[in-house]
Design a protein around this nucleic acid. Structure first.
Lengths: 207, 207
DNA sequence: TAATATATATGATATTGATCATATATTATC
DNA sequence: GATAATATATGATCAATATCATATATATTA
């Protein structure tokens, strides 16, 4: 057996990581197979020994990007006082650093509108990613705050709404031309998101 | 002078309208010149008599899409009681109809993440569109509610945050595979957005 | 109705990208 | 060190796409 066991698997992982970066910074359409392979230190031809199609790669890379972003966004949060964790998390998500480095960040914001038109596999990956982020928010909430919220179902709603605001805010801040306005979007959504999570919400009467 | 005055301008407008539809349903990369022209009842070659490049068309079509979506979202709202207008607007935006017909809807949600990587012209158009929608929200607020809010600056922040939630929520609801979850996202963001706008917000202490 | 300026269509080019067939390089075992 | 199985590279193909040059159709005015 030539090549150590797992050599191919390693290469595959390298290709996925390369794609996870490029997809977030250049989008799905903007990321060609050749570019992905070059960025992984390989040439384009070998690609199909690892994946059946570009779609397959996109699915795998999207999942990797979700994990990667999750790690980076929660890194070191244990060291922060419980009461402050959530605000820190939101602050990181809606930061200029995150806005300016999409290749390291949340793929929901970077690929969301492109994936609305994606194939079934990618959309399923997207959903898993969203659920993961929402339940991540859950874990960050200090117990005191959780107790302030009424039911778990209501919390789930609230978290989804906050995630929507975060994803939307980051995306808008990136799409807008003017720096000041972009900063303003980040500030506004940061404040509103923290505010929303710190106030118990009674279920609205809008159907 | 052959052809009536404004004939060419009309054709140009038809091309823009065609692109405004296709862009929202197929994305920027997915929308080729040939498809746009065919959808406008023309053939591809004449395109460059009307536009200098695809980018120019995208900018123009994006603006048209913002206007179009604005019209549709506010249509008939005057007939509704002031107190209820805002909730109606939000309800329309975060509705299944809107989710399922992107070609008729808000281009911020449909093209946001693709436009983050777009050229300068398109990003400026994006910004104008966002400002327009935010100030539209403003006009929908009944006076009583406006008075409940402290300053105008704070309102602007609030509106931006709500717009972010709406755009994000719509985008997420489209990208997610599972229908039930998608409906759940719409419901959650609808409730939270209305709630947020109906409660005065004191500026948070997060910097 | 003929002439002509203007609008649209036909057809070509050049580039890019996904995919695949085949050749070459690599290294664990003998 | 030679062998053989496996991993990667080279090179080709086919389709799509933006762009542009040139030809044709159109309709207003004389």
């Amino acid at each position: 057996m030539p090549y150590s066991a797992g050599h191919k698997a390693d290469t595959r992982q390298r290709i996925i990581a390369s794609a996870a970066d490029l997809l977030r910074s250049e989008g799905i359409a903007g990321t060609g197979i050749a570019k992905v392979m070059k960025h992984a230190g390989l040439t384009h031809g070998g690609f199909y020994a690892h994946f059946n199609s570009k779609n397959d790669l996109v699915s795998a890379a999207f999942e990797e990007a979700v994990l990667d972003a999750g790690r980076k966004l929660t890194e070191g949060l244990e060291g922060i006082e419980k009461q402050e964790r959530l605000a820190h998390y939101i602050g990181r998500y809606l930061s200029r650093v995150h806005r300016d480095n999409p290749e390291l960040g949340c793929p929901l914001a970077a690929l969301g509108s492109e994936l609305s038109r994606g194939d079934e596999g990618a959309r399923q990956g997207f959903e898993r990613g969203l659920r993961r982020l929402v339940s991540g928010l859950d874990k960050l909430l200090p117990v005191e705050l959780i107790n302030a919220h009424t039911a778990n179902a209501a919390d789930d709603e609230l978290f989804l709404a906050v995630m929507s605001m975060m994803v939307g805010g980051l995306m808008l801040s990136r799409a807008v031309g003017d720096q000041d306005y972009s900063d303003h979007i980040l500030r506004s959504t940061r404040r509103a998101a923290v505010e929303l999570l710190h106030k118990p919400v009674n279920a609205g009467d809008i159907q």
